[in-house]
Write a protein that binds this DNA or RNA. Structure first.
Lengths: 208, 208
DNA sequence: GTCTATAGTAAGATAGAC
DNA sequence: GTCTATCTTACTATAGAC
């Protein structure tokens, strides 16, 4: 086999084209043509377009989430028996995603993130499988922010994810490639913003 | 005419279906069927599917942006000759969007916002036309946050937009409709988060 | 302005030879 | 495992009668 595994070639080009055009507009024909494999190979190796998307996500985002849990566990262990600092916890979530920006072309990861914002009918199932266990672990924030209601913590967690995603997902691939995306600086900015956000006074009514 | 204008009927159902399924997956056939008008009526009134999308956006998001500018001008006038407070400026941006959540079904607005995250090829042009003038006006933040570099202000503005969009755009219509979306509370939470975020210390190197 | 009918295109999926 | 060829379906858009 002189060239990479067919399966890997499909994944590589599917990832690129999904990221660039979104799920619907990236046709299997375009993907297989770019990968220089046969159209039918997709169905042989993955079964369907949807399963191909899932494989793309699993390959790229799965490791990010594993790293998040690894870092979170480390932060908890190092601080024990006390609680880890808010910043360490937030960083354990944000840094793995930003670290990936070094290895993969940034706009690829950004484009994949955008797909998670597309029609939920396709992505909701993957989203839950990918992120469910991770988000579960971040309940550790509850005792770290004891003055906030669980609902407000959840809301702020959502704000953080939105800030992270949108900071990396503007409108249009051209803009995407031309942006200032020094990952370390972007992470510094983002961490400062969300850490302050989490430390803001509670706004929910205090429970009776 | 016993029922609303054909044009309006198309807009109503296009809005709903675009919001629910995204641009690509909402077919003109489904839209015209729901609106109980003929398929060809879309092309007669709007010319193309893309122009229909633009009309939908203009009708719903245009007024939000006008209200933003109106409130921003008011805040500036009331504070003159001093600068308006950070909070007033941020609120002038966030509140009009949240106010709309009272009038329209929340998930509709959220679904439209999601389309702005879809493939830029279609939406970038509309995005610039819709938001360009507004974002321009918020340069007022530069003197309000003198310790931040212009780039960092831009980054934080982006974080704010991301937090706003994502807080209202989770994954999947089912979840969308069942969420806790009391607009006023959501606004309070969001404002507290982003105001604190803007007030965080600068992270960019001080300019030489 | 509204309709029917259809042109023209592109998509995902599959059967079956090799 | 890989290929060609094709099935089936769905879409946007338009022509032309009323």
């Amino acid at each position: 086999m002189p060239r990479p595994d067919t399966r890997e070639r499909i994944l590589d080009h599917a990832e690129r084209l999904f990221a660039e055009h979104g799920y619907d507009r990236a046709s299997l024909r375009a993907i297989t043509e770019a990968a220089e494999v046969n159209l039918a190979a997709v169905h042989y190796h993955f079964g369907s377009k949807e399963h191909l998307l899932e494989a793309v996500f699993q390959r790229r985002i799965g490791p990010i989430n594993e790293e998040r849990i690894r870092r979170l566990d480390l932060a908890i262990a190092e601080a024990a028996p006390a609680l880890p600092s808010l910043r360490r916890v937030l960083e354990s979530f944000l840094r793995p995603a930003v670290e990936q920006l070094r290895r993969v072309d940034a706009w690829i990861l950004m484009g994949l993130a955008r797909i998670l914002h597309e029609d939920g009918a396709i992505t909701t199932r993957h989203f839950d499988r990918l992120f469910g266990p991770v988000i579960e672990r971040y309940r550790i924030l509850l005792p770290i922010c004891p003055e906030l209601s669980p609902e407000e913590i959840q809301a702020r967690f959502r704000f953080m994810i939105g800030a992270m995603l949108h900071s990396t997902v503007p409108s249009g691939p051209e803009e995407l490639r031309s942006r200032d995306t020094d990952p370390e600086r972007q992470l510094r900015r983002l961490l400062a913003f969300v850490e302050a956000g989490f430390e803001a006074p509670a706004t929910d009514e205090v429970k009776a």
